[in-house]
Simulated assay, not measured.
Amino acid sequence: MLHRKTALRLAAPVAVLALALTACGGGDDKADAKSPATSGAKEASEPSPSEPASGGALATGESATGTYEEDPGKVTYEILAEKVDVSTEAEAQKQVADPAKAKGLVLVTAHVKFTHKGGPALTDSPQVGDETTVWADGRRGSILIGAAEDAAGCEDPYDVESWKQGESHTFCETYLVPADAKNVEVHWTETDGEPYIWTFPNG
């Protein structure tokens, strides 16, 4: 099945970045990511003492372990939000077709490292990075399709044609968020789970 984000990338010209029509704080068809105020941890058998059972807030530099249903089956990943890159308002306006839509906003690119820890080897492009979303002060931003693939240090998941246990890849997502936000949150949600949340200061 062709995923939503894949279809959008194939449809948009390479040189033109399309601003998703999702308004800040709105929802789309990604996993049900929730803000820290509404997210809760589910119980799991034998959770690691240093990690939430399923979802929850994590400290900067702290990794999580979650599972995701890829095409060949359920894969266990170690996930770490390494950093966020924040642009200026002027830079954000240059990256969208209608600069007025980026007024008062900045681009935030979240760098998330995934390490294959268990389950089948992947023989096609992974979808695990699609579960990454960016929030600001508890509100979800608007995704900018196609921006992250060109960011330094980011890999395009569609270039990953095989992935074995022990191997790591860094995938990025770029969102527009309010320039005056105090904090930026990186959310990643495992299959049938709650979001893991890393919080970074904005600026």
Rank of each mutant, 00 (worst) to 15 (best):
A90Y: 01
T65C: 14
K74W: 10
E89F: 04
Q93T: 05
A102V: 05
T88K: 04
S125H: 11
E70C: 00
T76Q: 11
E131F: 09
E91Y: 10
G118I: 01
K113C: 12
E62P: 05
P36M: 04
R139H: 08
A90V: 14
V128N: 07
Y77T: 03
G118F: 11
W135L: 07
A147C: 09
E149A: 14
K42F: 14
R140V: 06
T88Q: 08
G138C: 07
L122I: 09
R139W: 11
Q95K: 15
T60Q: 14
V134Q: 08
E70V: 07
S50Y: 06
S48Q: 11
T38R: 13
S142Y: 03
T88N: 09
S54T: 05
S45P: 07
A64E: 00
E82D: 05
K113F: 03
P47T: 07
P120C: 12
L122P: 05
V106I: 14
L58K: 03
L80T: 04
G66H: 05
G73F: 00
K113V: 08
R140T: 06
T109K: 10
D85P: 01
D71M: 15
P49F: 03
L122H: 11
L58G: 01
D124T: 15
Y158Q: 04
A151M: 10
V84N: 02
D71Q: 10
T133C: 15
I79T: 03
A53M: 14
P52Y: 08
T38C: 05
K94Y: 11
D124E: 13
G118M: 13
E91I: 12
S39C: 06
G146A: 10
L80D: 02
P157Q: 02
E78N: 12
S39P: 00
D156N: 15
Q93D: 04
S39H: 10
L80K: 04
L144T: 01
S125T: 07
Y68C: 09
T123G: 15
D130W: 04
G40M: 09
K83V: 02
P120E: 01
A53D: 06
P47K: 14
A151C: 10
D85V: 12
E149P: 01
G40L: 13
T115L: 15
A44G: 08
A152H: 02
D32V: 15
V112R: 01
A121I: 05
P72R: 12
L80M: 10
G56T: 06
A148C: 08
S63G: 11
D85R: 04
K34I: 12
S142R: 09
K42S: 14
L122C: 10
E82K: 07
S48A: 14
V75E: 00
A59G: 12
A100S: 15
E51N: 10
K34L: 14
H116A: 06
